[in-house]
């Protein structure tokens, strides 16, 4: 494996090996010395052409705990805001000897373009591209679900997950559907019809418009952020109505199964898709998702970079 562009490229064995590696690496984050020498001398560039807090610091922390050198590159305050193309940016990174590029981009497919080009030779890791995929988020979500609910099983067989909200604009939902399906979980999508993508019937999921009916039948409720910055149309009448039908309110919290957990990829719109008291409740693993994110991203960097031969790692 050289790049991580999409969950669709992963086999079940590869996905599980990333999760198992993350389990072992999690203890590094618990230990007194939070650093391993494994990627010493490797340079990892965080190329963020779109705003991000969690993902960028998470990848940065992961790279630093493996002793890699990290260069942060955000489009604001760089030449990209002067209109530099992806190609010229990539050529610059190649000239600097980047062994891996973690890329977040507003255009779906930008990481794939970077990986298939001859512009640079390092690994490309998709940290979210447009409305396409966000594979590292799906892996950390699966890691969190496995830790809480798999009862020692290696995969997620038999678990039921509801993904609720703005599926149309959500790369997190796309990656999660693929990975959960790969690992044997069943997925129900709950959303207003206006926020479902075209072609949802070809996804390996069931679809419901009734949150109250769906919520009692699942082990995991995964809320999605309403992506107002991508909405240039009227997708729901108003925030109060959205919240009443598709928000996770404290009334709905009572309908959940006893051991079920609540997830959210962040950042949250408290009061819109999730009520503040629900986000802070004991069932919520939202903060833990962030902590797990570092371990999972360490595993991704390890799998992609540690085993590179000198030949193909060339700079």
């Amino acid at each position: 494996m050289r790049h991580l562009l999409s969950i669709a490229d992963l086999s079940k064995a590869q996905a599980l090996s990333i999760l198992d590696t993350a389990t072992e690496l999690a203890r590094v984050s618990d230990g007194a010395v939070k650093k391993l020498p494994t990627l010493r001398g490797k340079t990892i560039v965080n190329l963020f052409a779109e705003d991000s807090t969690r993902t960028r610091i998470s990848f940065e922390a992961a790279a630093k705990r493996l002793s890699a050198d990290v260069i942060n590159f955000s489009s604001k305050g760089s030449s990209a805001s002067k209109g530099e193309s992806l190609k010229d940016t990539a050529l610059t990174l190649q000239a600097m000897g980047a062994d891996a590029v973690v890329i977040r981009h507003g255009a779906s497919g930008a990481p794939a373009r970077l990986a298939s080009s001859e512009w640079m030779h390092g690994s490309v890791i998709n940290a979210g591209d447009g409305t396409h995929e966000h594979p590292s988020q799906a892996l950390l979500d699966a890691f969190t679900i496995r830790k809480h609910l798999s009862k020692g099983a290696p995969d997620l067989a038999g678990l039921r997950v509801a993904i609720v909200g703005d599926v149309l604009h959500s790369r997190v939902a796309r990656s999660n559907v693929l990975l959960l399906n790969l690992l044997g979980a069943s997925v129900v999508i709950v959303a207003p019809p206006t926020l479902l993508p075209v072609g949802i019937e070809s996804w390996p999921v069931s679809v419901s418009y009734d949150f109250d009916a769906a919520i009692g039948a699942v082990d995991v409720v995964m809320m999605l952020r309403v992506q107002q910055e991508r909405m240039n149309d009227l997708f729901y009448p108003n925030a109060r109505e959205y919240s009443r039908y598709f928000g996770l309110t404290s009334q709905r919290l009572k309908l959940m199964n006893a051991p079920a957990i609540i997830m959210h990829p962040g950042p949250m719109n408290r009061g819109l898709e999730i009520a503040a008291e629900v986000a802070d409740s004991a069932r919520s693993v939202i903060v833990e998702q962030v902590a797990n994110g570092v371990s999972v991203r360490m595993a991704i960097l390890y799998v992609l970079l540690a085993g590179q031969s000198l030949k193909e790692g060339g700079s």
Binding site: S17, L36, P37, L66, Y302, A306, G307
Partner: peptide, 18 residues
């Protein structure tokens, strides 16, 4: 595994439990 000096000469190894 994470402390080996031959990591970059070989394919990635699975990490074992500590």
């Amino acid at each position: 595994t994470m402390h080996r000096d031959d990591l970059r000469m070989r394919p990635p190894r699975a990490i074992m439990a500590t």
